[in-house]
Design a protein around this nucleic acid. Structure first.
Lengths: 67, 67
DNA sequence: TCTAAATGTAATATATATATTGCAAAAAGT
DNA sequence: ACTTTTTGCAATATATATATTACATTTAGA
């Protein structure tokens, strides 16, 4: 499913997909596909994205279990 | 570098690499290589490992920045 | 000590994340 | 309305995570 938390954090920082992509060193498509939930990114990429957006892994990539 | 937090969490649950691997559906080698820091695992694998060990992404895969 | 279990390591094969390019559609600015 | 920026989507190519098998080494238990 889509990663809205990532998209919101990016927009809050006023970054386009392309700008974020350049910061973390991947292509714009990669960012877009992660936001739309079509990729299963690597841990190091997740960490780089978190650092670029001043968030943690749990902030952007962890879903609390619904009981 | 090695992922000691993962290894400790696994040992605390009294699981061998092979047992954890079976639970999360990967090979024993994959777990070993992640613990020894030679792999860059996928996000979904990290999440599965976290759930198997009752931890979060931040618990096992996030390093606080040293300032 | 002896044995079995657990882990490290290496080779090859496969699946998939990611890059690249290009174009279309949508959104935002003027 | 027009222009520019942003995003979506597709095709092909490449890099790398992961599987599989096998063997060596270390660790733990008897």
């Amino acid at each position: 499913m889509k990663n809205m938390k990532l998209k919101l954090a990016r927009v809050e920082k006023d970054l386009s997909q392309e700008e974020l992509a350049k910061i973390v060193g991947v292509s714009r498509q990669t960012i877009g596909l992660i936001e739309s939930g079509k990729y299963n990114p690597s841990l190091s990429l997740c960490i780089n994205i978190c650092k670029a957006l001043s968030r943690t892994l749990n902030d952007l990539f962890w879903e609390e279990e619904e009981k």
